[in-house]
Design a binder for these strands. Structure first.
Lengths: 215, 215
DNA sequence: TAGATTGTTAATCGATTAACAATC
DNA sequence: TAGATTGTTAATCGATTAACAATC
């Protein structure tokens, strides 16, 4: 259908559209114009129409957009109509937190396994799932059709584990380790660098302090 | 010093510069040119020079940049030369994970307290810190000079808690709840919307699948 | 039909890259 | 001094916004 590559800037906004539209749907709202949505979301109506039109004409002149069908369409674009099988590597606090977060599974993200190099944790149950040794990682991924690997391990081991993941042709890595991973083009990486995020916050606090002083 | 507002695009790149430069420093590298750094980081040398020059001329013609002093400068720009006092609201898995993550404190981010509405958790110790009831939040923030509040609670309570935080003039909110918070301009918000991030990954997996089929 | 609102093209704005004179 | 590399200006590229004709 759509052929020209769509920019990541557009993609990054889709989950937010989906969130607001899902809320509207839950409120029982049937249709919405780009202008009304724009007011709610604090973006321009132009941007909403432009963004959505990358994927096809979901609206109707003089009417607006049907909320329910737009929710369905955006979910489909994001691939949320399919199930994704996931493993977590690193059964520390963060790994456990993600595993226990129920909301992901509502969107088709299914945690199938969790791995750790620490033998003391092996066999321990987190929710329904037990912690496995790293040695089983590769065979587990192949056997269970895993798409996504979550890295919640220190950066030192992240690089080596990534090599293994690439070896068994994982499709995507959700990386919480504080390194940039080097992977082939066909492997998708999404970084969540928490300390980077915190540093941005710190910058903005300081900038604000300075601005106050100056005025 | 610098007067014109610096774009968030630039700020977002600073932590990454800091990371690479710190690595270089640890490797004992004394100086680096924008070109060498550009090769390591996979960004253009032009961008590096442009970015750094927003904050002053840290380099020297014919020489490059001194690694150690650049590390210091960027850290200062990001406000990492100061301590930030933090409270976490929500003592679930994610809250605990963040509290236990030692690397933040190395950068001057000090966790002072953790709060939860669930009485069963009150008094429980996580690391050195015990879980407190929500009723103590406001007075605690004032007494302990807290700058940053971390929200690791469901979105339903996030909105009400944010109101309280604004009331006691918190400086910044690090928001892990899946809502957009409505705060006055002087309060900084940094969102970490994990499910948005996961959806982006999902989109890119699907896009890749499609591209393979087409070729 | 008249009014509303989209889809889409054109204009603007901002961010990135290239180029090069300044200078260590 | 000659070579290297910055700081900075100018050119390019891409993303956002505005405008409006198409159309429900």
């Amino acid at each position: 259908m759509e052929e020209k590559e769509i920019s990541q800037a557009v993609i990054s906004r889709l989950p937010r559209y989906l969130r607001y539209l899902t809320e509207l749907k839950d409120e029982g709202v049937e249709r919405i114009s780009s202008q009304e949505l724009s007011k709610r979301m604090q973006v321009t109506a132009s941007q909403i129409r432009q963004d959505l039109n990358h994927f096809g004409g979901f609206g109707q002149q003089g009417y607006g957009y049907n909320v329910e069908s737009l929710v369905t369409e955006i979910a489909k674009i994001l691939g949320l109509d399919q199930e994704h099988y996931i493993v977590i590597i690193g059964a520390g606090n963060l790994g456990q937190a993600l595993l226990n977060y129920a909301n992901f599974s509502r969107r088709g993200f299914i945690f199938k396994g969790i791995f750790d190099s620490n033998p003391a944790l092996h066999g321990m149950k987190i929710g329904e799932i037990e912690v496995r040794p790293m040695e089983e990682l590769k065979s587990f991924i192949k056997k269970n059709n895993i798409d996504i690997a979550v890295l919640t391990i220190p950066k030192t081991s992240a690089v080596e584990v990534t090599r293994q993941l690439v070896d068994c042709s994982i499709k995507a890595i959700w990386n919480f380790a504080h390194v940039d991973l080097d992977v082939p083009d066909e492997v998708q990486v999404e970084n969540v660098h928490l300390s980077d995020s915190l540093m941005k916050l710190s910058y903005n606090i300081c900038r604000n302090k300075k601005a106050e002083k100056d005025s």
